[in-house]
Computed example of a mutant assay.
Amino acid sequence: MRAERLRAYVEDDHSLTLQLPPEVPSGDVDVLVLYSELPGVITEPETPSKPKTLEEFDAWLAQQPAIDRSPDEIVREIAEERASWD
């Protein structure tokens, strides 16, 4: 799955018209609309700050949920995902 980032304008009648790049194939797509609650202001989603030290990274890592899959299960899932790309 790929994503294209486009700027667009929502008309007063709430319609939206987009022209996609030629490499986008025809067919069903999902559309995600991001908008600000302030008229005319589009904000970027917040991105978490990156740890600056090894201690900050260790603290972040300790807060992550445990993985309940074995390494073999993870490798199998990755192989299944790659096989679905063709």
Rank of each mutant, 00 (worst) to 15 (best):
D30Q: 13
T47D: 03
H14V: 05
D13N: 13
L61A: 14
R5Q: 13
I74W: 03
A79R: 13
V75K: 07
R82I: 11
R7S: 15
L18T: 04
E81V: 07
P51V: 06
R2P: 08
Y9R: 14
L38R: 15
S49K: 07
P22N: 10
V41G: 01
S36H: 06
S36L: 04
V10Q: 14
L16Y: 06
T53R: 01
E46I: 02
L34G: 07
T53A: 00
D28R: 09
D12C: 04
D30L: 10
D86R: 12
E4Q: 10
E4H: 09
E11C: 09
W60C: 01
R5F: 09
D28V: 02
Y9F: 11
E55K: 11
S84I: 03
Q64W: 02
L18V: 13
V33W: 06
V33T: 03
V10N: 09
F57Y: 14
S84C: 03
D12A: 15
E55G: 11
E73D: 13
S49M: 03
D58P: 00
S36W: 01
L18I: 07
L61V: 05
S49W: 00
A8I: 01
A66C: 02
L20P: 05
V29K: 08
V10S: 10
L34R: 10
T17K: 12
R7K: 12
Q63I: 00
L61R: 08
R69L: 13
P25W: 06
D12L: 14
P45H: 08
V10P: 03
